[in-house]
Every structure is written in C-alpha cells, then in structure tokens.
C-alpha cells in the first residue's frame, strides 16, 4: 500500500472487515484487509475458492458493502453512498464482466450493449453509435444483429465486455471472465482485456484461476499469500510500536 505513492491511486480498500451472518454463525471473510490499486493497473487476483475474491470485487464495484472499513474509488468514498446514488455511481464508473455473461436473451448483441446507455443522457442515435463503437472494439461489429443464442461462448463474452466498456468507465471488474472458455478463446479474451488496459487506460481487476493470466496482467496478487504477508507486517508494526 506504500509502494504506489508516485502513481495515482484508483482503488483503495482500507481496514475492510466483511462477514456474513449464516444462521446464528458469523462467517468472517475479510478481517482488517487493505489493498491499493493504481490507475492503469491490470491486476489478476488469484487464490483458492472461498477465500473472498468475488467478495472483494463486489466491494470495489459497490455491489456489496463492507461490515466496516472504507472503500475509496477515485478519491471518493463509496461505501457510505445511498443505494440509489451507488446505482448511479456504478453506471458511470464501473464495468462488470462475469463468468456467466448474463446477456438478455431477447436482445441482440447491439441491444445488449446499448442497455447501460439507457441510464445516460445520450439520445437514441448516440446510443446506437456508442454501442456500435464498443462492438467494433471487441471485434463483434458483424454480429451486432445476432441474439446471444446465435453466438459462441467467446463471442458472448466479447459482447459482455462491450457492454462493460460502452459507458466508458475507468474501472473494469472481471470475475473469472474466462472460466467457461477453452484455452484459445480464453487467450483472445485476455488479449482483448490487455488492449483495453494498455491502449484505453482502463484499470482492470480480474479474479481468475487461469495460471496464464499472469502473462497478461501487470500485477498478480495471490490472495492467500497477500493476506498472510500483510498479517505479518501488521504484527511487526505492532511490535515496533510497543
């Protein structure tokens, strides 16, 4: 958290505690967790299942709130926003790509990509243009008129990425975006994400099990090790102080 002083910080998680109530049991997922991601980074978040990777992504994207601690994105604290404000904030600042694309089956690729733009002030012609541009960026302009069921898994994921970038968010959050894809298609998707990161300056946080992801990401966080190391640091800090 101290190594990014020179660079501008995009994402900052400070003293995050996150626990779920499961019946009478309290499941602690994150305990005093800290993380800082600089603008323009492409972070691959790895580690075994159940460790809280998706939870972290949801916290960053404002899909979930921490039990305590602060989530600061672009110098704005978002965990204190009301649900409505958070919704609007999400629409403007975050693009999501999930393992399952969750495209609306009744809309064409073009329609699906246009969907988030309904929340903007753009008129229908502008919405069309923006959506077409996003589809071209992911190489799907020729499939604009196709319904999701007429597309392959990789193509669907491309459309989902187009939908994530169409409102030009600065941050893209991906939860196992290649989890359902074969090697070749997965590589294509990862290349696409790299392009978005390198040439369009998007900050990307990607949860993945894909070992090859490190070839694409600018920084790989092994969550298990990361948590262990920061615990050690905290302990030594306490020792120094006392």
């Amino acid at each position: 958290m101290q190594n990014n002083n020179q660079k501008k910080v995009a994402i900052e998680l400070i003293n995050i505690n996150k626990s779920y109530q499961k019946g009478s049991n309290k499941v602690v997922v994150h305990d005093n967790f800290n993380l800082s991601i600089a603008k323009g980074e492409f972070v691959a978040l790895m580690g075994p299942s159940g460790l809280g990777k998706s939870t972290l992504l949801n916290l960053i994207g404002g899909l979930d709130l921490p039990t305590s601690g602060s989530v600061i994105i672009d110098n704005q604290r978002i965990d204190t926003l009301s649900e409505g404000k958070l919704s609007t904030w999400r629409a403007e600042n975050i693009g999501f790509v999930f393992q399952s694309h969750h495209l609306l089956p009744v809309l064409t690729a073009q329609g699906n990509v246009e969907l988030p733009l309904l929340l903007t002030a753009l008129n229908s012609k502008q919405r069309k243009q923006h959506a077409s541009l996003a589809l071209r960026l992911v190489g799907m302009e020729e499939r604009a008129k196709h319904l999701p069921k007429e597309l392959s898994g990789g193509q669907e994921q491309r459309v989902a990425i187009a939908r994530a970038i169409v409102s030009d968010p600065k941050i893209i959050l991906c939860d196992e975006p290649t989890g359902n894809l074969d090697r070749k298609t997965a590589d294509e998707i990862l290349t696409l994400l790299t392009t978005l990161n390198k040439y369009f300056g998007k900050t990307i946080v990607m949860v993945t099990h894909d070992l090859r992801a490190s070839e694409y990401a600018s920084r790989v966080i092994n969550l298990e090790k990361y948590i262990h190391d920061s615990k050690q640091n905290q302990l030594s800090a306490v020792e120094v102080n006392s």
């Binding site: 919704s87 999400r90 629409a91 403007e92 999501f96 969750h102 969907l115 988030p116 929340l119």
Partner: peptide
C-alpha cells in the same frame, strides 16, 4: 433473476 441482478449491477434501479 440473474438478468435482473445484472441490470442492477449495470446501474438500473
């Protein structure tokens, strides 16, 4: 529900 959740994630209220 999945699509609705996705739409919520996209910022729809």
């Amino acid at each position: 529900l999945n699509e609705s959740a996705m739409m919520k994630a996209l910022g729809f209220s």
